[in-house]
Design a protein around this nucleic acid. Structure first.
Length: 200
DNA sequence: CGTTCGATGCACT
DNA sequence: GTGCATCGAACGT
């Protein structure tokens, strides 16, 4: 079942934890790709120095202030698209960044998309466990780009679904890849998943 | 094992 | 002009 909009209209840390084990599905013109969410990070409010809303409302971060249950997609480092699920309520900027998936559907499609990345010319094969490891990688594999910014996650083509996947233990720790706001343990992941980023 | 660093685009000041 | 919620190759130990 596709998660309803009200799933996202809750405290962000609860949404973050509950997103683990849910399935991100992109029904694109070139095929369907899906994966189990195994790693996320929460970004909560203008008081969170790592949240894009820390500078107040701008054109770029406007989706964070909008209705919950929509995607916030943006280009990072000029190279990678990162995808978030907007949470809480209209007017309060918060979201959950999706950082890693365990691919379950459309593996060939994902590998084809990953192989197109300019820096891996001549190396078309991508290890399956690395296909969706890291927020930039998963967006590439899933075919997510700016066209999906503000798209509702409870409607196709980009949805998050409950397929009854049982995650084991969930662990919490500091968010990674940021310089401010490190004091918050707002990253959570499925213990033991090989797709989780930040491991050898 | 570990760390460094270049690629690359755009929102924001 | 500055600074990123990254990735992976290329080095050093």
């Amino acid at each position: 079942m596709t998660l309803p909009q009200r799933f996202y209209a809750r405290p962000t840390l609860e949404v973050a934890r509950d997103l683990l084990g849910k399935v991100l599905v992109h029904r694109a013109p070139d095929g369907v790709a899906a994966g189990v969410i195994v790693e996320v990070e929460a970004y909560i409010g203008e008081d969170d120095p790592a949240c894009h809303a820390a500078v107040g409302p701008t054109r770029r971060n406007a989706p964070l202030y909008g209705a919950p249950g929509r995607a916030y997609v943006y280009l990072n480092y000029g190279l990678h698209y990162l995808v978030n699920a907007v949470t809480e309520r209209e007017g309060f900027p918060a979201a959950v960044l999706i950082r890693a998936l365990e691919p379950i559907e459309g593996l060939e499609l994902m590998q084809r998309r990953r192989g197109r990345a300019p820096w891996r010319k001549g190396k078309p094969d991508v290890d399956v466990t690395r296909l969706c490891r890291g927020p930039g990688n998963l967006s590439t594999a899933m075919g997510i780009d700016l066209a999906l910014n503000t798209s509702a996650l409870f409607k196709r083509p980009l949805t998050i679904e409950d397929r009854g996947v049982d995650v084991g233990n969930v662990r919490w720790g500091p968010r990674i890849g940021i310089t401010r706001g490190v004091e918050h343990a707002w990253r959570c992941w499925v213990e033991g998943s090989r797709a989780v980023s930040g491991r050898s």
